[in-house]
Design a protein around this nucleic acid. Structure first.
Lengths: 243, 243
DNA sequence: CATATGCAATTTACAGCGTAAATTTTAAAA
DNA sequence: TTTTAAAATTTACGCTGTAAATTGCATATG
């Protein structure tokens, strides 16, 4: 019969908890995130947090959902700086550089999203798909636009991913061949960016002074040369055959 | 005046500790490695381990040094199955597939070496260089051989990584331009393999059933096409200019 | 207004962790 | 046999997540 009750000290304690969690993640890394230290910083007892999050994993999940959204939105904003089909290559470079910049600016968040910094934690599967799609949305959109203006160059060897023509209808529901290939291109590009960035964050390029950025720029150039038809002629070498 | 003393129950307790550690890492992941649980399994008190390892990090470092060696040796063995300059492309495919196979067979070890599964731990810098080189030795060797038989195709855009011709002598000690470029090619290839494998291990391809392997094969094909001159003619488009 | 209701917070407690300190055991050297 | 030092144990401290019981308090009802 009684419902609402506001905490005396801190209004919106749920958000306050997350804010402190982010602060601590930024400072000391997601691995050292601790309910007790959050509570300490809020002058709160540790179990009080359980009124707002079922357990530590639930808090982490909430943080990650937010982070995926922010991350995706950032990419979308960067992409929106290069609208229209005339600046697709520019947008590709900008997105890829934004990818690395974000990772270097917020290494702990990058690790949280794409590494496994928290022992025993796994992002719940049902929320995973949406969150991941959100984070890669700008790149997928870009690849889609490249394709629709005929600038996407799908390497021949990728055609092996398609089912043989006689059973093209076996594709997963809602998937057409074009989507399957554009998705695959996006994932390949994403994994190349992630490969370099994650090795850099892991300190694997330590010693090779300043070469991480140079390597990244080279890789960007190679990626664009590989998948983009700059002359913007009659489309990639594959679309005609799969339309 | 007294030195040696053998433990009563277990001879070579140092190795026994590492063996149990590996067992636990394989079973429950490096993150849940615990000195106490190791001690429990050996019917030993936890602080006893401190007679053999300065602290938990020292144990982890020892494990990683071993793992880097085993990993590198495995790659070398795979590579030695395709000797000579006639089978370099074959060797490239075999090495890359072995890379993914090892990661899928021993995901916890792969994470230990190339992820950051243990909170607060960092591999000591002075041992890092040697261990890393050991692990990438086979690939570096392969790229070197490709170059020496004129099959290495260094993309034009990579030349930007070299210092301008008039100050070529500013290169780090013991580094010549060819080494710098072959190293860079090896790192680029490594990061592309690692990008796909680490995303796959992180569960980022969950849902897309079976496509991880297909993607990997596509990427392999693209890598070889990008860096290897199959016709084995008069060398890459760059060596002549930097010899 | 007084009382009952139920959420929010606290305290207490337990099991786990790494590891520092003090202590005991033990095997070999003198 | 005594001495000595290495190897092991016990104890203890502070940290973690979290379950359980308890208290405080704001609201809705009698």
């Amino acid at each position: 019969m009684v419902r609402p009750l506001k905490s005396r000290q801190i209004p919106n304690l749920q958000e306050a908890i997350k804010a402190v969690a982010w602060k601590q993640i930024s400072e000391t890394g997601a691995a050292s995130l601790s309910l007790r230290s959050i509570a300490r910083e809020l002058n709160i007892s540790a179990p009080a947090i359980y009124n707002y999050f079922a357990d530590r994993d639930a808090l982490v999940t909430s943080l990650m959902v937010d982070a995926f959204a922010v991350y995706g939105q950032y990419h979308n904003e960067v992409a929106s700086g290069y609208p229209g089909p005339e600046r697709l290559v520019e947008r590709m470079f900008a997105l890829a550089r934004a990818f690395r910049d974000w990772a270097l600016d917020f290494p702990q968040r990058y690790e949280l999203l794409f590494g496994n910094p928290i022992p025993g934690y796994r992002f719940p599967e049902h929320e995973f798909h949406a969150a991941l799609h959100q984070s890669n949305c700008a790149l997928l959109q870009l690849i889609g636009e490249l394709h629709s203006v005929g600038m996407l160059q799908v390497p021949d060897s990728m055609l092996a991913m398609l089912p043989p023509p006689d059973r093209m209808q076996d594709l997963p529901a809602g998937q057409n061949p074009v989507e399957l290939l554009t998705d695959a291109v996006a994932v390949l590009i994403w994994s190349r960016l992630h490969g370099l960035v994650s090795l850099e964050l892991a300190g694997m390029f330590a010693g090779r002074q300043g070469s991480a950025q140079a390597l990244y720029e080279v890789e960007l150039e190679l990626i664009v040369r590989q998948f983009v038809n700059s002359n913007r002629m009659g489309g990639s070498d594959v679309q005609p055959s799969i339309r």
